[in-house]
Design a protein around this nucleic acid. Structure first.
Length: 875
RNA sequence: GCUCGCAUAACUCAGUUGGUAGAGUAUUACCUCGACAAGGUAAGAGUCACUGGUUCAAGUCCAGUUGUGAGCACCA
C-alpha cells in the first residue's frame, strides 16, 4: 500500500466475484456464525426485467443491502430474495416497437410467435439489470433468483387465481373501467390525472316540440351521440318545470328526456347536464339509477361508430373539432370558453384514458378486509409511521381491482370457456382436457393476461415456494422456507408504489397465509438532483448510478445515499456530497497507511486485552459508536447510523486517536485492532473498502482468507473510565492551542505552558503529560494549582491554561495590536465626529445614521478587546 | 376539497421518552510538523417561519396562521 489514495475499481470487481463464487450471499453463507432461531428475510422489489439501473434503484438496493449485511453479520439466517418482474405493458410495448421497425405487427405474426419474440427479448436483456445491481455491491441470494413468469411462479399465480375464483372473489363483469385506446383496461391507480387546458362548450339542446331549448355545458362535445338523458337538479327553480320534457339531440333524430338528479351542481355551468352513461363515470351511476340506455359511441380503438352518424370512422379526439365546427355551422354552439380541468392519462403511454364499459375480470375489494384490520391492529409497522394514514385512506375507498389486461405478454388468465355448453371454469392445468360439465374437448382460454401487479402481489410468499408445486424445489426454494421466512421481516421500497404493490401484497399475503406478509415496512423517499428537482430524461438532469460508481466507487455512492437517507425526506444528490464521502474513504485509506508504518499486522480485537490508556479509551469510544449504530439500524435510521461512523472514524479515531498515538507508540497496535473492528461496523455501508483495509491490516488477503462480510458484527460493551481522563487531555490541548492563536503562535512550538486542572492525581498527571505536550506542541508543560501572572490565558470547560509572556518574543504581537488599536481609534474618532455633528444627524438618511451607530459600537467593542490583550501582554 | 409532509447557520441538511442548538460545504486567520492539502489547527456565524397555549423548562408537545411540496378525490 503505497499510493496516496485508494483505487476502488479493480478491487470492487475482484472482491464481488469472490464473494459470489463462495456463496456468501446465500441463506447459509454465514453458517459459521448463525445463531439458532434468528431468521431474517427481505424480498427485493423485483425491477423490470428489461429495465436499466437508475438512481432510485441505487437507493432502495443500498438500504436493503445494508440491513441484509448487518443481519447476516449479526448471526441471522438471512434471505434476501432477488428477482425481476415481467412488466407487462412496458415489455410488450418494446417488443411491439421492434416489430413495427421490421414492418410487421403482433397481429400479423400471431400470439405464439409474438410470445417467442418477447421471451427472446427478455433473455437478451435480463442479465443487464442484474449485472448492474452487482456493480452496487449488493448481496442477495443470487442462486435463488426468480422471474415473475418462471415456471414455479406461473404455477403460484394460477393457484392464487383459481382459489380466488372458486371463492367468488374474482369475478367477471361488464363495468365501467379506465380504458386506454392503446393499452386497454387499466386499474384505477394506473390512471394519472393531469391539469389540462381544455374548453367548455355551451351547446343548445332544442326541445323536441320546437318550443325552445336549454343550454348544456360540456368539456367533451364528441360524446353527445351517446347522451340518453339531460338532467337538472330537482330543486332548481329555473328548470323545475322542464323535468320530463323531451329534447331532440342536435343533428340527430334521437330524443332524450330531461330528468332530475341531485348529482347536478346548480351553481356550475348552466345547471343543465348532458348524461352519457357509457362514457362518463358519474353518468354511468346516474344511468343505473334512472335505468337509462347505455350507448357506446366509439370502439376499443376510439373510432366513432354508427351512433355518431356522419362522423362515423373518425378518431374520438380528432373528431372533436370537426364536430364542433359542424355544430357551430348549424347554430347549436352557443359559446366556447377556456376551461382548466383534470384529465386522466395512461401511466404508460400518456394517452387520454376513457371511461369505457367493458367486460373485464375483477378482484373483489372484500379480499382486503382482514389485511386492513390486521394492519390497524399493529400487526405490521410502517417506517415512517405516518404512511399508515395514506394506506388506510386508500384502503378505505378501495374499489374492485380490474386485473385483466388486453395484452399477450403476461400470465394468461386461467379461465376456460366451453365452446359447446358455454360453461366457464378456472383451472390450474395448462391445457385442461375437457369441459367438466359436458366433457366437450372444444375449450377456449380467456385471451387476456393478468395485471402485472397480480403476480407481484404474491412475491413475498410465491418466492418461498407457495403454489410452486415441486418445480425446482431445493434449488430455488426449500421446503421450510415458509416456516423460516414468512412473514418477511422487512420490506424496503419507495413510497410511490404503496398502493400499486404494497397494499396488494398485504391483501394477498393475509388472504392466503392468514398473516400479513411483513413485520416492518420501510418506505423511502425520492432521489432528486442537486437543485431539488425530480430527475427525468427529458430534463436531462438524471444522475446515472453507474457513472457515479465508475467515477467514485460503489462504496462512495452507497455511503452518500445512506448518510442522506433521513426517514421520509427526499434526497438531494450532488457531486459535492459524493466528494465529501470520497474524502472520507481517502481518510480511512490514509489512517491505514499510518498504522502500517508502525506495525506489520494487527490482531483482532476479541483476541487480546487493551493495555494502554489510549487503547482503552478508543475501545470505549468504539463501543459507544457500536451501540449507536446498532440502535439506529434497528430503527432504520440509515443516515444516523452512517453519521455515527463518519464522526467516530474521522473526528475521533483519526483526529484524536491517531494524533494521540504519536505520543504513545505502544498503543498503535491496539488502535489497529480497534480500526479493524470499526471496519466490520462500517462493512454493511461500504463493503469493498472495509474488506480491503481489514485484510491490509491483518496481513491477509481475501483470496487466501475469510471475508469480513461473514464475521460477527461488533457488539457493544461498557463505557470505560478512561473516557473522563481523555476528555481532560483533549480539553487541555485545545485550550493551549487557542491561547497560542491569541499570541500569534498558532501551530508553532512554544517553550512553556501551564495547565490548571482541579482534582486530579499525580498518577493522572503523569499519564496526561506526554499527550498534552506532544499535541499542544509545548517544550515544557507544567501543572499548576494557581493562576500564572504575566501570561495569556484560556479558560476551557475542564481546565485553564497559561502561556507565560516572558518566554516569548512579544514585540511583533504588541506592534500588531498597537497598530490595530490606532486604526480603530481613528475609525472611532471619525464616526464620533460625524455623529456629534448636528447637521449630519439632521440631514443624513436614517439607515445611514443607524449604520454608523452600529459601526461605532462594533469598533468600540473591538478596541476594548485589543486593549485588554495589550495590557495583559505588557504587564 | 380531504389527507400527509416540510419551514433550523450564507448554502445543503441532521436533531423523539421536552433539559444549554449540530454536521458538511462556504467564510476568516494560521499551518506543507513524516497517514492524509481530497489534509490539519483555531475562530466567527442561528428570534429553530409566525401567533398563542401546556410545562419549572418547547426546535421538540397542542391549537391556529403563512409559505411550500406530495398524495387522494373532484363540477358535466
Amino acid at each position: 500500500m503505497s499510493a496516496n489514495s485508494y483505487e476502488p475499481q479493480t478491487i470492487e470487481n475482484k472482491f464481488y466475484k469472490i464473494w459470489e463464487d463462495r456463496k456468501y450471499f446465500e441463506v447459509d453463507g454465514n453458517k459459521t456464525i448463525q445463531e439458532e432461531g434468528k431468521n431474517f428475510s427481505i424480498m427485493m422489489p423485483p425491477p423490470n426485467v428489461t429495465g436499466r439501473l437508475h438512481i432510485g434503484h441505487a437507493l432502495t438496493f443500498t438500504l436493503q443491502d445494508i440491513i441484509t449485511r448487518y443481519k447476516r453479520m449479526d448471526g441471522y439466517k438471512t434471505l434476501w430474495q432477488p428477482g425481476t418482474d415481467h412488466a407487462g405493458i412496458a415489455t410488450q410495448n418494446v417488443v411491439e416497437k421492434q416489430l413495427l421497425a421490421e414492418g410487421t405487427t403482433k397481429e400479423e405474426i400471431g400470439r405464439e410467435a409474438f410470445l417467442e419474440r418477447a421471451w427472446a427479448w427478455k433473455e437478451e436483456s435480463a442479465g443487464i439489470m442484474t449485472e448492474q445491481l452487482r456493480k452496487m455491491g449488493v448481496s442477495p441470494a443470487w442462486e435463488r433468483e426468480r422471474f415473475t413468469m418462471d415456471e414455479g411462479l406461473q404455477k403460484s399465480v394460477k393457484e392464487a387465481f383459481v382459489h380466488l375464483y372458486n371463492e367468488g372473489l374474482i369475478v367477471r363483469g361488464n363495468y365501467m373501467v379506465n380504458w386506454c385506446t392503446h393499452d386497454g383496461a387499466l386499474s384505477d391507480i394506473e390512471v394519472e390525472h393531469e391539469d389540462h387546458n381544455g374548453k367548455f362548450y355551451y351547446m343548445r339542446y332544442p326541445f323536441a316540440d320546437g318550443s325552445g331549448h336549454v343550454e348544456v355545458a360540456t368539456t367533451r362535445p364528441e360524446t353527445y351521440f351517446g347522451d340518453t338523458a339531460v338532467m337538472v337538479h330537482p330543486e332548481d327553480e329555473r328548470y323545475k318545470n322542464l323535468i320530463g320534457k323531451k329534447i331532440r339531440l342536435p343533428l340527430l333524430k334521437r330524443e332524450v328526456t330531461i330528468i332530475a338528479d341531485e348529482h347536478v351542481d346548480m351553481d356550475f355551468g348552466t345547471g343543465v347536464v348532458k348524461v352519457t352513461p357509457a362514457h362518463d363515470q358519474n353518468d354511468y351511476e346516474v344511468g343505473k339509477r334512472h335505468d337509462l340506455e347505455f350507448i357506446t359511441v366509439f370502439d376499443e380503438k376510439g373510432i366513432l361508430n354508427d351512433y355518431a352518424g356522419e362522423f362515423k370512422g373518425l378518431e374520438r379526439l380528432e373528431a372533436r373539432d370537426i364536430i364542433v365546427k359542424r355544430l357551430e355551422e348549424e347554430g347549436f354552439m352557443v359559446k366556447i370558453e377556456d376551461h382548466k380541468h383534470q384529465v386522466g392519462h395512461c401511466y404508460r403511454c400518456k394517452n387520454i384514458v376513457e371511461p369505457y364499459i367493458s367486460k373485464q375480470w375483477f378482484v373483489r375489494k372484500e379480499v382486503a378486509d382482514k389485511s386492513i384490520e390486521k394492519t390497524n391492529a399493529g400487526e405490521a409497522q410502517f417506517f415512517p409511521p405516518h404512511w399508515i394514514n395514506s394506506y388506510n385512506s386508500w384502503m378505505g375507498e378501495l374499489r374492485d381491482w380490474c386485473i385483466s389486461r388486453q395484452l399477450w405478454w403476461g400470465h394468461q388468465i386461467p379461465v376456460f370457456y366451453c365452446d359447446d355448453c358455454e360453461h366457464e371454469f378456472a383451472s390450474q392445468e395448462e391445457h385442461p382436457e375437457s369441459c367438466p360439465k359436458c366433457a366437450s374437448k372444444n375449450l377456449t382460454q380467456d385471451p387476456d393476461v393478468l395485471d402485472t401487479w397480480f403476480s407481484s402481489a404474491l412475491w413475498p410468499f410465491s418466492t418461498l415456494g407457495w403454489g410452486n408445486g415441486d418445480t425446482e424445489m431445493d434449488k430455488l426454494f426449500q421446503s421450510d422456507d415458509m416456516k423460516d421466512f414468512y412473514p418477511n421481516t422487512l420490506l424496503i421500497t419507495g413510497f410511490d408504489i404503496l398502493f400499486f404493490w404494497v397494499a396488494r401484497m398485504m391483501m394477498m399475503g393475509e388472504h392466503f397465509n392468514g398473516q400479513l406478509p411483513f413485520n416492518h415496512i420501510y418506505l423511502h423517499a425520492l432521489v432528486r438532483d442537486e437543485k431539488g428537482e425530480k430527475m427525468s430524461k427529458s430534463k436531462g438532469n438524471v444522475i446515472d448510478p453507474l457513472d457515479m460508481i465508475n467515477k467514485y466507487s460503489a462504496d462512495i455512492l452507497r455511503f452518500t445515499l445512506a448518510i442522506s437517507a433521513a426517514q421520509g425526506r427526499d434526497i438531494r444528490m450532488s457531486t459535492e456530497k459524493l466528494e465529501q464521502n470520497r474524502n472520507f474513504t481517502n481518510k480511512l485509506y490514509n489512517a491505514t497507511k499510518y498504522l502500517q508504518m508502525n506495525a506489520e499486522t494487527f490482531p483482532d480485537m476479541k483476541k487480546f486485552c487493551m493495555q494502554s490508556d489510549l487503547g482503552k479509551y478508543m475501545a470505549s469510544r468504539l463501543n459507544f459508536a457500536t451501540k449507536e449504530v446498532r440502535a439506529n439500524l434497528e430503527e432504520y435510521k440509515f443516515n444516523d447510523a452512517a453519521l455515527v461512523m463518519y464522526k467516530f472514524l474521522w473526528n475521533e479515531f483519526c483526529d484524536w486517536g491517531i494524533e494521540l498515538s504519536k505520543a504513545d507508540k505502544g498503543s498503535i497496535i491496539e488502535l489497529g485492532a480497534i480500526f479493524k473492528e470499526a471496519m466490520k461496523l462500517l462493512h454493511p455501508f461500504m463493503p469493498f473498502i472495509t474488506e480491503y483495509l481489514y485484510h491490509e491490516l491483518s496481513g491477509t488477503t481475501l483470496e487466501d482468507g475469510g471475508s469480513i462480510m461473514i464475521m460477527s458484527y461488533p457488539t457493544k460493551t461498557k463505557k470505560r473510565k478512561e473516557e473522563a481522563k481523555f476528555e481532560i487531555i483533549m480539553d487541555a490541548i485545545v485550550s493551549i492551542r487557542r491561547a497560542k492563536v491569541l499570541v500569534d503562535l498558532a501551530n508553532q512550538k512554544i517553550e512553556k505552558a501551564f495547565v490548571k486542572i482541579d482534582g486530579i492525581s499525580n498518577k493522572d498527571k503523569k499519564i496526561m503529560l506526554p499527550f498534552i505536550t506532544r499535541l499542544a506542541k509545548v517544550e515544557n508543560l507544567e501543572f499548576t494549582d494557581i493562576k500564572i501572572e504575566n501570561s495569556v490565558s484560556d479558560i476551557a470547560d475542564l481546565c485553564e491554561t497559561f502561556i507565560p509572556t516572558d518566554s516569548i518574543d512579544l514585540s511583533s504581537i504588541i506592534a500588531k495590536l498597537t497598530k490595530q488599536d490606532e486604526k480603530l481609534q481613528k475609525e472611532i474618532g471619525k464616526l464620533n465626529g460625524m455623529l456629534s455633528n448636528e447637521r449630519f444627524v439632521a440631514n443624513a438618511p436614517e439607515d445611514v445614521l443607524k449604520k454608523n451607530h452600529i459601526a461605532l459600537a462594533d469598533a468600540k467593542i473591538k478596541q476594548e478587546k485589543v486593549l485588554e490583550q495589550l495590557s495583559s501582554l505588557k504587564a
